[in-house]
């Protein structure tokens, strides 16, 4: 079909309301968001100061690791897990207990193993029994909280003196260690999603469960795998929380799952599954962290941060849905 033949030789023009090309919408929104954020950052006094940047990079790392894990679950078509925040809190406590007993190495292994197993068990329930992922994660929150509170009798736990944990509170080339970990986790997530068979199976399952099954994907293993990795990444977030705050209780993990869901959504990963990436989630996490840091600098209290995060998430959901309706 040549370009010339396309000209409309109509007897009359139908009245067409301004018809925007909806495929350009995401690009347009991205441009607006980047410009608006840059302007707001420049206009916020103290935003580009070293202490602020460092604290921004540190705080985004906790939430970012959880969010990358959440991305795997979302892409696999299982929407989200509400239990990752509680898992992070539990991992932080396991880490401290194990470090006190056997040193940093043992602590790391124990924390990651517990977090991965707790999450993988939920994945098994979702993949094998075909339980609803949201319901399973809500039940898991209660189980994790209950178990942890029974053991700690609702108190915080701390490192023994002389564990040498202080050295992990440093920087690598001027960048907080936490942020380096986040970059590694993002790279690992991206590698899993794009370069492994498991990763491709996640996308296939997320875009059509029945087709994946008919194509011979071992669906329950794939789902369990997604939750296992999500748990491991969340465990890392918990370990970092314990190190940074020099102690842990179950309240440390509160709210991370919500921020992580927000990061996944803002990054543009679709809630229906089969589409998204770890890099997108990193971008989403950065946007949310920047907005929160800015609000803090401008003297808004915590409540306002919640409100703004909620508004952003809501706007993104509306945007995604309007894209799907066309």
């Amino acid at each position: 079909m040549t370009g010339k033949g396309d000209t409309v030789r109509g007897t009359r023009e139908m009245s067409m309301p301004l018809a925007p090309d909806w495929r350009l919408l995401p690009t347009a929104v991205r441009a607006v968001v980047i410009v608006a954020l840059t302007v707001a950052c420049v206009a916020t006094p103290g935003f580009f100061s070293l202490p602020n940047i460092l604290s921004l990079l540190t705080t985004v790392s906790f939430m970012g690791c959880v969010a990358v894990g959440m991305t795997l679950i979302t892409i696999s078509g299982n929407i989200m897990s509400f239990s990752l925040g509680a898992t992070a809190g539990a991992a932080a406590m396991v880490f401290i207990v194990a470090v006190n007993i056997g040193g940093i190495g043992i602590g790391l292994i124990a924390a990651l193993a517990v977090a991965a197993l707790v999450s993988a068990a939920q994945g098994f329930a979702v993949g094998w029994v075909r339980a609803n992922p949201i319901i399973v994660s809500i039940a898991a929150v209660a189980l994790i909280y209950g178990t942890a509170e029974i053991f700690t009798r609702h108190s915080s736990i701390y490192f023994k003196p002389g564990t040498g944990i202080e050295i992990l509170r440093g920087k690598l080339g001027g960048v907080p260690l936490e942020f380096v970990v986040l970059l590694c986790v993002t790279a690992a997530g991206q590698f899993i999603l794009y370069l492994t068979r498991f990763g491709r199976n996640l996308y296939m399952m997320g875009s059509s469960f029945r087709a994946a099954e008919a194509a011979g994907v071992k669906t329950w293993r794939t789902v369990t795998g997604a939750y296992l990795w999500a748990g491991a990444f969340t465990g890392l977030a918990g370990v970092m929380l314990a190190i940074r705050y020099d102690g842990a209780n179950m309240d440390y993990g509160v709210g991370y799952e919500y921020d992580a869901i927000a990061a996944v959504l803002v990054g543009g990963t679709l809630m229906k599954g089969g589409h998204g990436s770890a890099l997108r989630t990193l971008a989403g996490a950065m946007i949310i962290a920047i907005v929160q840091a800015m609000l803090l600098l401008r003297g808004f209290r915590q409540e306002w941060q919640y409100l703004f995060t909620g508004l952003i998430v809501f706007a993104v959901i509306l945007l995604h849905s309007s894209g799907e309706r066309r």
């Binding site: 996308y203 296939m204 875009s207 059509s208 029945r210 994946a212 099954e213 008919a214 089969g274």
Partner: peptide, 25 residues
């Protein structure tokens, strides 16, 4: 199904949209 696929036994569904293709991929 994985066992069948390993033996090169494949299924083509009458419901291509939901049991064959990965539409967004």
């Amino acid at each position: 199904v994985p066992h069948c696929v390993a033996r090169n036994v494949f299924f083509l569904s009458e419901d291509r949209a939901s049991e064959g293709l990965f539409p967004p991929m």
